[in-house]
Design a protein around this nucleic acid. Structure first.
Lengths: 250, 250
DNA sequence: ATGCTTTCTTGACCTGCATCAAGGCGGCGC
DNA sequence: GCGCCGCCTTGATGCAGGTCAAGAAAGCAT
């Protein structure tokens, strides 16, 4: 079955940073092997079952987290407002570097949407690294800029796209990031994606409610844009789905 | 009258950077006078009437803009969606540094909400400065982080607060930033603010429509939380207004 | 003044989505 | 197996706010 096998609990984890997907992603790629080896020797690795918090808003920052496998989300909960999933983070991405860099309390929290394996690098170790090699720091900083750009786009989208459009956009986005990893087909043909999260999480991501989300998915399915099989979606035509990403024109 | 006097057109502008409000704000405070003098000699200053664009999304970046007086807004227009004002910028703030730093095309546009006087610093000059003094660069980078934080908060707010609450939050925010500049009263007593923008702009800022905004202001006035005089608001009790900032509890 | 333009307000209408409330379907422990 | 407990779906209802349209008010030019 397509469902990801749940990680078995309790068994010890040994991960080699030099062989990790994170190794060549974004910020660590510029670090020499020698440094990575030091991180490798001092990191700690944990499994996070679905739904568990990796860190929480308002807490002091103990370090950064590299996702070896699974999907997590950065979550923002303004006091007494429902939470919003501000952005997703996939295997290979580094999480929580912002408070680590400027040594502030966590401004958001992160939670595992699927069972994850995540390594933790102590903030002191991180800073020792960065003092010797400034390149990753710049990578982190441009990462913030990209996040800002993305968040601004999301803001516009939440403000003006109906839920149906946002759902479509999310799915198209997931397909696109899967491209080059495992998708066999061409640009706009049929394809498949996994939704690596529950309906509730997906609703938080799209700033809506689970009920509304279900209905939106249902509507897309009724219109033949989607074929639903739980957490695995079949998409007859990506381009037709992409058309939903844009507000009503006629 | 309290209304800002409109800048008279056409007359030449001479501004001394060393005496500018921008001088001691955020990023330039760390630059020695000698450097500021060089900027002063090479900057160009312009008036921007209300509504005029300072720069536009997709354009190449020619430099940064320091607001000497007036209010501007960073504006984001996703293709075929209504625009969103992503953040405000007041006198003393520096605008458009992001694309200037990483030399990309402008990701958003900026427009003058009121008549503004704004200085332009060429990107080449800026980089020459930054090569000699790294401190402002760090200031710029933490500024991005702050913006990200703010934008995330806005996202949550737009998603979950009703228009009425968002209006209240905007007004409270404007009052708070005016504090220490010209407000005589205490913490939560009555006070006044100017709304330095049109209803249309304000609506774009709050992700709604002018009609709805008018009605929300009207409702606040009916409830005695506001007394409206065009673009000057009187606030009987700031704390009562602040209570509107939080979603309905009972 | 007088007109012209842009901004603001008001009204009527209607739709998208939140909310409340059941009921189906797995997954998991016993 | 059986029962329990989350998740997901479906239905019914109400309201916030978007949209269209028409005036009123405020600027600005002549």
């Amino acid at each position: 079955m397509a469902k990801l096998s749940p990680v078995s609990r309790g068994q010890p984890i040994a991960l080699d940073c030099l062989a990790c997907p994170t190794r060549w992603s974004a910020e660590w790629a510029v670090l020499p092997d020698e440094q990575m080896a030091e991180i490798n020797a001092n990191k700690t690795t944990r499994r996070y079952p679905r739904g568990v918090f990796i860190y929480s808003q308002g807490q002091p920052c103990t370090g950064v987290y590299c996702i070896a496998s699974g999907t997590a989300a950065v979550r923002r909960a303004e006091p007494s407002l429902p939470a919003v999933l501000v952005r997703l983070a996939f295997a290979g991405e580094t999480l929580g570097y912002r408070s680590a860099l400027d040594e502030t309390l966590r401004a958001s929290d992160a939670k595992a949407l699927e069972p994850c394996v995540i390594c933790h690098v102590e903030v002191t170790l991180l800073h020792r690294m960065l003092r010797r090699h400034r390149a990753p720091l710049q990578r982190f900083q441009t990462h913030i800029a990209v996040d800002l750009d993305q968040t601004e786009a999301d803001l516009a989208q939440v403000a003006w796209l109906p839920v149906r459009g946002r759902v479509a956009r999310l799915i198209v986005g997931l397909v696109e990031r899967a491209r080059g990893v495992d998708t066999p087909t061409g640009q706009n043909g049929p394809c498949e994606v996994a939704l690596p999260m529950t309906r509730r999480d997906m609703a938080e991501l799209l700033c809506t409610r689970p009920e509304t989300l279900t209905r939106a998915l249902q509507a897309l399915e009724d219109d033949g844009l989607l074929r639903n099989a739980g957490h695995r979606l079949a998409i007859p035509s990506l381009s037709r789905l992409r058309a939903e990403t844009v507000p009503h024109v006629e």
